[in-house]
Amino acid sequence: MSDNPNNWPLWEIFIQSKRGLDHKHVGSLHAADAGMAIANARDVYTRRQEGSSIWAVKSEHIHASRPEDAASFFDPADDKIYRHPTFYTVPEGAKYI
């Protein structure tokens, strides 16, 4: 189906559930343009009061890392626990750092 050149482009949809929170990726859908993508997202992803704001991004504009790069990208972080700020004593009385 996605090989059909007549299909509308694919859009990635991000929904903000409450003001102040992040927009979270909820899925994707087809639409002819941005306006239709947002209208479709409203109908597909906010039917059960999930959202207060919608972002739509054309899927082709999302650039992803390649799975085969995962080892060289992410594994080197495995043994670098000193990058976690866990070696400091939290001053007394400091609630938030």
Binding site: L29, H30, A31, N40, D43, V44, R47
Partner: peptide
């Protein structure tokens, strides 16, 4: 005609 419109119409 497409899944998204199907849902829009039933909504």
């Amino acid at each position: 005609p497409i899944l998204e419109e199907d849902i829009a119409l039933t909504n």
